[in-house]
Design a protein around this nucleic acid. Sequence first.
DNA 1: CCCAATTTGTTCGTATGTATA
DNA 2: TTATACATACGAACAAATTGG
Lengths: 265, 265
Amino acid sequence: MNLTISGLRLGGMIGAAPFKPIAPETAGMPLYRAVKRALMQAIEDGRLAPGAAMPSEARLAANFGVSIGTLRQAVGELVAEHIVVRRQGRGTFVARHSAERFLFQFFHVERGDGRREAPTVELLGFERGRLDDEVAEALGRRPGDAAWLFDNRLMLQGRPVAHDRIALPVALFRGLSEKRLHDRPGTLYRLYQDEFAITVVRALERARAIAVDRATARVLGVPPGAPVLQLRRIALSFGDKPVEYRVSTVHTAVHDYVQTLVRPG
Amino acid sequence: MNLTISGLRLGGMIGAAPFKPIAPETAGMPLYRAVKRALMQAIEDGRLAPGAAMPSEARLAANFGVSIGTLRQAVGELVAEHIVVRRQGRGTFVARHSAERFLFQFFHVERGDGRREAPTVELLGFERGRLDDEVAEALGRRPGDAAWLFDNRLMLQGRPVAHDRIALPVALFRGLSEKRLHDRPGTLYRLYQDEFAITVVRALERARAIAVDRATARVLGVPPGAPVLQLRRIALSFGDKPVEYRVSTVHTAVHDYVQTLVRPG
DNA sequence: CCCAATTTGTTCGTATGTATA
DNA sequence: TTATACATACGAACAAATTGG
């Protein structure tokens, strides 16, 4: 992957410069923050693709003209935010939206006994529609903007546990289709990442208890009016840019909604 | 605070040694982890009291015989876990359970518009009883062990939003009384910390939607059978030792239950 | 108001250990 | 085995915030 000529490593010299110099608007910001920004920008722009190995820390430090300690501080924050992954002896990689990441960062439902497993997903409906006021507001768009609207049913151990209604701005997801959605090999967020260059980095989630409506009750196989958990999620990309709005209805008789734990060490 | 004799700093030499030497069972563990352990042990034992200033980083490094960088790595993890707080120019302090900490780390209810405020608390009942099987299991105790059982009602803007049923093992909270509970000046966890030397460092929380029972409905001012959020929380101290079990019933018509966000930077 | 002392925050550089290919 | 990568540990210097004189 790294071109060498008679032992002389090139790297940044080949083709377009892989990293922009530290931006001027980073004045007053600690150097490691500026470096972090530059790295995030590179990921956002696609100069560093998901799954790709980043240049080594030594190389990056030289590239930015900072010490290795400063560079590690920048990368350390990216690791804490699950944007990159470090593997000793191998390298540092731009995080991909794998099934594991979905399970631990974005799927907050688990069995009453605390066991976790990946749900199977079933696409129930897909259409092109418009954003209503509330969703448009949440996504930072105008009411009436074109949107993809679709439904998933999530099953665990063969039982329906959740119904997701998802809204995506067409402006961000041009060319999405029911077929592409249905045929995707990995998680939904992996599809966003691979096909639309949109990386979900975190999500805001609010929960409340409601009486389930008739249509959702049928999907979940519960009596109409039963108490269910309703989650409203805004998925955010870099710079906290909202990219997805989702309403999940969760049947919490057998499963629970769990807080994600902050567990250093 | 620091005794000096003709410019020679003493510190650890005066009185009881403030920190134990690196324990032998830390073999194979990185040095900074061993240092972190020793610091946590000092907090746990009360040699470093909540709110107290720790010795400066330079002094601690000398005390442990490690470099300042290694010491900072240890303290950095304690900061990430909210066990200590660093303040530039002032020092590093053992974190206390203030109203702010409660609000941001342990109180996950906020208004629909996203605004957060501290609830007012009302003690509804207090008795000495026994742990049932489920709670005993969660607290790592034997069924039938003596326990304090009490109820709080939480209000926001004058409206009831939550009802908490709390169970504490008497073995850990000897001498608790309704009066001490009622007269406490700060948060509940502050009381645990100041009066019983028990520091809650994190909590596991599971949520489900249920139909509210008659008694709780009265407390919350909602119709019996209305859908409400039920939270079961196990509060943990150092070494993930469970110290409190709590069942909260939350009225989520006006307020939401929110995920705590992991927000570096 | 300014100065000096103290403390954490940032940045640098080097050396060595450990995991991976 | 060798080379490469990240992980740990050391130490030094200066910046920035705070406190007290």
